[in-house]
């Protein structure tokens, strides 16, 4: 039973292949879904920054100033902006996933509304976060 995958490919009928992913324009729920994965992987890489920040704070003022200097540079701010957006996106879409896992909002209309909400919400909250950060600076 488990050995069906081991059947030699030569014995399979030569059927035409169906068009694959790149042929279609992805619908919003599909884009929202793959973005969740991409932001998740990006945030995993971002944990390096989080760990660096904490370790530098424990090391001393000089090491901490280096981190602050890097994060305050134009490239650092750009990375932080992306990090912030990915955090908001993954958090909001994660809540959407938890609602789905509980059996809610699974109708097509709700799935589209949720997708718009998560995209708009994550962009909006990122801008609010940066305005708040610069206002308090």
């Amino acid at each position: 039973m488990t050995d069906t995958q081991a059947a030699p490919t030569a014995q399979r009928p030569n059927r035409p292949l169906s068009p694959h992913l790149q042929v279609y324009r992805l619908p919003l729920p599909a884009i929202a879904s793959i973005t969740h994965r991409i932001t998740g992987a990006g945030l995993t890489a971002g944990t390096l920054l989080f760990a660096w920040w904490l370790v530098a704070a424990a090391t001393g003022a000089e090491a901490f100033d280096t981190v602050q200097g890097v994060l305050g540079s134009p490239i650092g701010l750009l990375i932080l902006f992306g990090f912030t957006w990915a955090t908001w996106y993954h958090t909001l879409n994660g809540i959407r996933h938890l609602v789905w896992d509980a059996g809610g909002a699974l109708e097509l209309g709700a799935v589209y509304r949720g997708g718009f909400l998560v995209w708009g919400g994550s962009v909006g909250l990122t801008i609010v976060t940066f305005i708040a950060a610069f206002a308090l600076k």
């Binding site: 001393g60 003022a61 602050q68 305050g72 958090t91 994660g94 976060t129 708040a132 610069f134 600076k137």
Partner: peptide, 28 residues
């Protein structure tokens, strides 16, 4: 754990926004 993560993360984001530009002594 994901559900518990949400309030923890909100707390951290608000805290970090409050610490923007803070020096080493303030952060520690």
């Amino acid at each position: 754990l994901s559900a518990a993560y949400v309030p923890l993360l909100l707390w951290f984001i608000i805290a970090v926004v409050g610490l923007t530009g803070a020096d080493h002594a303030t952060v520690t």
